[in-house]
Write a protein that binds this DNA or RNA. Sequence first.
RNA 1: GACCGGGUAGCUCAGCUGGUAGAGCAGCGGACUUUUAAUCCGCAGGUCGUGGGUUCGAGCCCCACCCCGGUCACCA
Length: 504
Amino acid sequence: MTGTGDAQHVIRARQEKLRRLQELGVEPYAYRYEPTTSAGAAIRDYEAMAGESSVTSRLAGRVRSLRPHGKTTFVHLEDRTGKVQVYFRQDALGDEGYELIKLLDLGDWIGVEGPMFRTRTGEVTLRADKLELLAKTVRPLPYGKEETSETGEVVQHSGFADLESRYRQRYADLAVHPEVRSLFVTRAQVLREIRSFLDERGFLHVETPILQPIYGGATARPFTTYHRALDAELYLRIADELYLKRLIVGGLERVYEIGQVFRNEGIDRTHNPEFSMLEVYQAYADYHDMMDLTEGLVHHIVQEVKGSSVVEYDGNELDFKPPWPRSTWYEALEKHGSLDAYALDVASLRAAALDAGVEGAEDKGRTALLDGLFKALVEDELTGPVIIYDYPVELSPLAKHKRDGDTSLTERFELFVAGREIANAFSELNDPFEQRERFEAQVRMREEEGWEEAHQVDEDYISALEYGLPPTGGMGLGIDRLVMILTDRSSIRDVILFPTLRSG
RNA sequence: GACCGGGUAGCUCAGCUGGUAGAGCAGCGGACUUUUAAUCCGCAGGUCGUGGGUUCGAGCCCCACCCCGGUCACCA
């Protein structure tokens, strides 16, 4: 087993230090500390003062490096804003105070107090008059060493590179990698910008059930669980959709929800069993309005997070400045697959699918062939951002069909970026009679074709539609995938704090 | 699920055609009052993912399994 497992001799040595600290009357696990500044601010303020150093700073953080030199010791203290060097002298701290320095380890949380100065080598440093231990680290953190070369380049020595350990022990990964902390700061910023954008436009942030008696709103297998007191089987939601539209029926008119949904499917670098979705519903709007909303929202997020509309992802420059290219689903297939799929019969489609290497094409029907062709020929080409709209009806049981009367198509679009679906939206089906038929068609597909991802009939949802759902536009956006784009990560696990792993 | 690669000290890795395991950093002891990969001297640290097998002898070869990563498939 790899990872930060047992390090018994190191842990024992640190526990011995803990005992000695207690003998010295030092509480190794403190209750409180009140810093007056942060590492970043202390350095910035000192530099702004141009060398006058009478101010005493109080700083708290983690011991990131330790360089004892007999009666003096240099430490780098790290907090959420960065690192600052701290200089300890035996004559300043007293013999007893300096004993504490000798018992420090990498990773210990400490508080220090003293004036800032600049060392002979020019580094802004806190000269500590006081030291407080805030929490002892008895298990060694897998710190690598950093060397700053003459060119100012930071070179990492050793380090904590094993991906499995980093995901399983994210606390250690975060502790030793400031850039990982910063990625999750970016993720939080994305969530904040989504909320502020929608709040400003009169959308109401709501919460709907995660435990549901009937799941729906997407095509996916659910996780199943059991409620004792109710003696009932419940499902973890696969989407927020049906509950949010109930709220539109109720007159809330503009709602959104941000939260995790759960899909019982495979795990790979773009799929985690639980992932975060934004869903937005707006009364009186259609999918064209949702295209505008999606463009505006995503552009806003990119602009705020990156300070520009351009994002570099996997070596490509993606520009999110609206308007984005828009093309219909069939046009995209024609452009990238050179197929007039709309006009082709099933036999021709099958031939094309076999040609494109679509697995199982021999047994597939028209819809599945179309879908297979789209995935095989088009998706990878959609570097984006690009909006693909007007999907075949079988793929979209909750979307209204095209208003021009072509009932084989629905008013639905997806946003693609870097070959991946980022958002999915449609003019919501609000006809309760047609909705019942679509559900029943899904059930038939489940029963006749064994399609486990098919929708169930949600009678309560149909009742809600019977009370009247106004024309409504809805949109769902995969937050993890958006964060991947913004942080140039190729694995969804990198943008989820605690990704799902096999219990090993 | 299939295929490929990987799992050796706390971390990062090396380990030849099979001969009972090494380095750097971290750790421990010592020296050192402006260092910054601090340096110098000394020491300790390992069920080699797990279980079988072949062999006089296995980190290395064979089989099964576990976990991770990558690619593909699945996710109509």
